[in-house]
């Protein structure tokens, strides 16, 4: 049996009705593939993994895989994941979100989750648009781009999701693309292994809603764009600024050791027990 077939049999839900909801050429499937490969390499039990998502095209990702899966409300995936992780810290909790999901409606939860530093893994698929609702501009739609709610042009300025996560205090932040699929496996694997709040921004393509309207071509052309504009973090450090003007970095942006919330909370429990015992 081919390696990919084995992974499909092992991780995709046999009783789930296919086909999936995504358009042909969508990056979401590549992210799902990378996630499965990363988890398979880590050798975790399926029972120990909780895959949480919000709303949007990315939100449909967990339903296809045979983990504990939780498809929450728009923007709130991290809040549900926080509860899951605190109630059972042994579970590996991985959160999938989209750009609008994580940084518009869920922006506040995102920065606070980063600050709080629970041991969660957040994967944010950034396709620069609200795809499922039909192509409205999101917080990562570039300035000047077109969208169904910016038919004249977008006059807002885009977030850099990864840099936002760095500033908000995440323990590890990485950026990958769906073109660099093998690299994406490794970034996700590293993020899951990381103790603390880790973020992987995945530059993806929505040729249906964003590419077509902005004359960026189909899936192939948009993947080619990712290839042409991505620069490894290590390489970018040695490049002059003008050469980086229209580029974006991929790789690990930050990796730091910070106190983990659940570890800290154990100490709170000890302090509380001591206080209660003293009061008796």
């Amino acid at each position: 049996m081919a390696e990919v077939t084995k992974l499909i049999h092992k991780y995709l839900r046999h009783d789930k009705k296919f086909p999936h909801v995504w358009c042909p050429g969508c990056g979401n499937g590549i992210v799902l593939g990378a996630l499965i490969r990363a988890i398979d390499r880590l050798g975790y039990e399926k029972d120990d993994i909780v895959l949480v998502s919000g709303i949007g095209c990315s939100g449909r990702l967990p339903v296809y895989v045979d983990f504990n899966t939780l498809h929450t409300t728009h923007g709130r995936a991290l809040t549900f994941a926080t509860g899951v992780k605190l109630a059972n810290p042994k579970l590996h909790v991985i959160v999938i979100m989209g750009d609008g999901d994580a940084t518009a409606i869920g922006g506040n939860h995102f920065i606070h989750a980063a600050r709080r530093n629970l041991n969660l893994t957040a994967i944010i698929i950034n396709n620069n648009i609200y795809g499922m609702t039909g192509g409205q501009y999101s917080p990562t739609t570039p300035y000047g781009a077109l969208a169904t709610t910016a038919v004249y042009r977008n006059i807002e300025h885009a977030f850099s999701i990864a840099e936002l996560a760095v500033t908000a205090g995440a323990a590890m932040v990485a950026r990958g693309t769906v073109y660099h699929a093998n690299m994406l496996d490794k970034l996700i694997e590293k993020a899951i292994l990381k103790r603390g709040f880790s973020v992987v921004e995945v530059v993806s393509n929505c040729h249906t809603q964003y590419g077509r309207r902005n004359k960026l071509g189909g899936a192939v052309q948009m993947l080619q764009w990712q290839k042409d504009h991505a620069v490894r973090v290590e390489k970018a450090a040695e490049m002059p600024e003008e050469e980086l003007a229209d580029k974006f970095t991929v790789g690990v942006l930050v990796d730091r050791d910070l106190p983990i919330y659940t570890e800290e909370y154990k100490k709170i429990r000890e302090a509380a027990r001591a206080k209660m015992a003293a009061m008796r």
Partner: peptide, 9 residues
């Protein structure tokens, strides 16, 4: 959201 997540766990 957090209390729902905790209950599911």
């Amino acid at each position: 959201g957090a209390i729902i997540g905790a209950s599911l766990a």
